[in-house]
Amino acid sequence: MRDVHGLAADGFDGVRAAFAAAVNGPDGDPDAQLAVFQDGRKVVDLWAAPDGENAVTALYSTAKGAAHLVVAMLVQDGTLKLDQPVSEIWPEFSGFGKERLTLRGLLAHRSGLIGVDGGFTDEELADDRRLAARLAGQRPFWEPGTAYGYHAFVIAALTGEVVVRATGRTIREHYEERIRGPRGLDFFFGLPESEESRYIPVLPPAKPIGRVPADTLTGVAFNAAAPQVDDHGEFLVRFANSRYTRALGPGSAGGVGSARGVAAMYAAAIGDGTTPGLLTADTIVEFTRPQDPGTDLVTGETNHFALGFEVQSHRYPELGAASFGHSGATGTQSFADPASGIAFSYVRRRFAVGGGGGARENAGLVTAVMDAAR
C-alpha cells in the first residue's frame, strides 16, 4: 500500500483520498503525481513515490497543449491568422489540395498529413523541422479539410513550421521566452542536461500492445509502417526514454516535466481572476470551440478536437464548455477550466490501459477535484 505525500488544501481532502485510491488501484501507478491550482493558488500537490516530489518524466502528447498555447498567443497577438492558407506562409506546403488548407483547418487535425509512406525513423520523429520537411511533399491520406483525424506525432511539427515561417523562431523558443522561463515552470520542450538527474524513465504497459496494422489510418498516424516499430508499447517507451528525444523536445510527443509544472502552465493560461491570464476570454472561446462533431478517422473518438487542444467537457461533463487541455500516452491528463478557475494535471510514469486520457482513474480524480472546487 503506497502512502501519499504532499499538499491538499482545506476542502481538498477528498482529492487526497481519490489519489491514494488511484495509485493503489488495479491499474494504479505508484510513481504518479497530481497537481491542481484554483484561481492561481496551488491547492493540490501530491505524489506517491517517496522520491517523487521533484521527479520529471516523459509526458508525450501533453506537449501539444503547450505548443498550441503558443499558437493561440500568436493568433491573439495578430501575428498569425486562423483563416489564412498555410501555403501563404509556408509555400512548400502545397499540392494535393494542401494549398487550400487554413491554419484553422490544420489546428483541427484536418490536413490528412498524419504520417508518410514508409514511416519515420526515431530520429526524424524527434526533430520537428525534419518532420515538417518530409510532410510538406507528402500526399495526404484524405482530402485536406474534408475530415479530421489525430495527427499523433506530427501536428506540432506542422503548426510549428507555420510559426517558424511567420516569426523566424520555433515554438520551443516562444514557449521558453514567454511561458516557461518567466515562471520557472517544471515542464520542458527539450530537457536541459542539468535536469537529467531528475528524469524517471517511462515504464511499458503490463502486457504487450502489439503492432497496429500499418495499412490503416491508425497505423499511419502511429508510425506502424516504420521497420523499427514492432510492439507499439516498446516503441513508445524507447522513443520517450531516448536522451536524443528529450534533448530536442518535439512539440507533438516530446514534453518532459511534472504535474506541478503542467498545472502551473494551465493556471497561467487562464489567470487568477485578478491577474489576467496568457489568453483573453475571446481567445479561449475561439480556441476551445469544438471544430468537428463527427468521428476522428484515426482514434474513432467523437467531438475530439477544438483548435490544437482536446475538447475536455466531452470526456468530463463536470467541466465548463471552454475547458481545454491535452492528454498524454501513459494516461496523463491535464487541462484548464476557466469557469471554475481550475488547472489540473495528473501525470503517470507507467502506461495505463487505454492510454491517452483513458486511464480509468482520470474520471474519478476530475470528479473529486471539481466537487472540492465547488
Results as ranks from 00 to 15, higher is better:
residue 77 D to R: 10
residue 250 P to R: 05
residue 131 L to C: 04
residue 329 A to Q: 13
residue 169 R to A: 12
residue 129 R to T: 08
residue 353 V to D: 15
residue 152 A to P: 09
residue 214 A to P: 00
residue 329 A to M: 13
residue 326 H to S: 07
residue 232 H to W: 15
residue 159 T to W: 03
residue 46 L to I: 00
residue 152 A to V: 12
residue 229 V to T: 09
residue 123 E to N: 09
residue 179 I to D: 01
residue 150 Y to I: 09
residue 56 V to L: 02
residue 244 Y to V: 14
residue 122 D to G: 11
residue 4 V to G: 04
residue 27 D to K: 11
residue 39 D to R: 15
residue 37 F to W: 14
residue 365 L to W: 00
residue 15 V to T: 02
residue 366 V to Q: 00
residue 113 L to W: 04
residue 221 A to G: 06
residue 30 P to Q: 06
residue 238 R to V: 11
residue 48 A to M: 00
residue 245 T to P: 01
residue 42 K to W: 07
residue 175 Y to Q: 02
residue 335 F to G: 05
residue 207 K to D: 14
residue 210 G to M: 10
residue 284 I to T: 04
residue 184 G to H: 08
residue 321 A to H: 12
residue 335 F to E: 07
residue 280 T to V: 08
residue 26 P to Q: 09
residue 45 D to F: 03
residue 323 S to K: 01
residue 71 V to L: 00
residue 222 F to V: 15
residue 43 V to L: 06
residue 144 P to F: 00
residue 111 S to L: 08
residue 54 N to I: 10
residue 115 G to H: 07
residue 256 V to D: 10
residue 21 A to G: 13
residue 6 G to E: 02
residue 295 T to C: 14
residue 265 M to T: 05
residue 172 R to Q: 14
residue 308 G to C: 07
residue 230 D to N: 15
residue 31 D to Q: 13
residue 284 I to V: 08
residue 1 M to I: 13
residue 298 V to Q: 10
residue 124 E to Y: 09
residue 62 T to K: 06
residue 13 D to H: 08
residue 47 W to T: 04
residue 32 A to N: 03
residue 209 I to C: 11
residue 179 I to Q: 00
residue 252 S to D: 06
residue 137 G to N: 10
residue 137 G to M: 04
residue 216 T to H: 06
residue 268 A to G: 04
residue 29 D to K: 02
residue 137 G to Q: 07
residue 279 L to E: 02
residue 34 L to C: 01
residue 270 I to F: 06
